[in-house]
């Protein structure tokens, strides 16, 4: 019997990839570069229902220090006006070029603080080659930060009181990496190590902006911790192709049904 492996190509399960979305024409008022070489992508994600009650988490370790805080579930955060927070929006297409301004202005560090017995912020992104992960502890108890990126060194770091630590990611990941604290199981955060600056995380109002994109058709992906890839009828596997034009490309307001975010 031949050991020869049959070469097979499988058809796309999502063969009918969503039609390329073209932004409504807008004046390039906030374009990053003065010339027309780059485009920005913006939009607003809205949770189309009543903001869910954030469950109070069980805080039963280091109670003398952590017990005094009202620590709530952060896995689904909806702002006062329905804005859906903490959705990652990022470029899936291979990066062709990055504007020099973005390379110059990037912060050297991405900060994770342990404060009031939670991780702050809850969602982070990091440009591996240009940024280091800086972790500090503002609490009066030792904290722990543990994460295991794919094909990269796992971390399980103790951060004693009044100390800090730095970490370097060596490999871009395909989606955000969860961060845990082995001492305080309620603590949770995410970091998305990539090799480009094209990641945005929606804010309290649900808006996001990715700046300085090369022009042309680009594929983006949406990810949220409750859904993994944020899949909708229009976004198979959370993906959306956009024809980026010079200036501002506005996806407008996108309403997302609460059923997508139900705890499985």
């Amino acid at each position: 019997m031949s050991n020869k492996v049959h070469r097979r190509r499988f058809l796309s399960q999502t063969a009918a990839v969503a039609a390329v979305w073209t932004a409504a024409a807008k004046t390039p008022c906030r374009a990053l570069a003065a010339n027309d070489s780059w485009g920005d992508l913006t939009g607003r994600l809205v949770y189309d229902g009543a903001a869910p009650e954030r469950e109070r988490l069980v805080v039963d370790k280091d109670v003398d220090c952590c017990g005094k805080f009202d620590i709530r579930d952060e896995s689904l955060m909806v702002g006062a006006d329905g804005g859906l927070m903490n959705v990652y929006v990022y470029l899936r297409s291979k990066v062709r070029a990055i504007p020099p301004e973005l390379q110059k202005t990037v912060e050297k560090q991405v900060l994770l603080d342990n404060r009031d017995c939670i991780f702050i912020p809850h969602c982070m992104k990091i440009w591996n080659s240009r940024q280091e992960f800086y972790i500090k502890n503002s609490d009066p108890v030792a904290q722990n930060v543990a994460f295991s990126p794919d094909l990269d060194q796992p971390a399980n770091i103790v951060i004693p009181v009044d100390t800090d630590a730095t970490w370097k990611f060596n490999r871009p990941q395909r989606k955000p990496v969860p961060i845990a604290c082995n001492y305080h199981p309620w603590e949770s955060a995410y970091i998305f190590p990539v090799d480009h600056p094209y990641v945005a995380i929606t804010g309290e109002d649900g808006t996001f902006t990715i700046r300085g994109l090369p022009l042309g058709e680009l594929e983006f992906q949406f990810w949220h911790e409750r859904t993994d890839f944020l899949e909708t009828r229009d976004w198979p596997r959370g993906r959306l192709t956009v024809a980026i034009r010079a200036g501002l490309n506005d996806l407008g307001t996108i309403k997302l049904p609460p059923v997508l975010f139900a705890k499985k």
Binding site: N156, I157, P160, K168
Partner: peptide
């Protein structure tokens, strides 16, 4: 160095972290 794959963390100094 801790016990790998478990909650037992490394208490000694390591790259980027002074340790406990």
């Amino acid at each position: 160095a801790g016990i790998k794959g478990t909650p037992m963390p490394a208490a000694g100094p390591q790259a980027g972290a002074g340790g406990v």
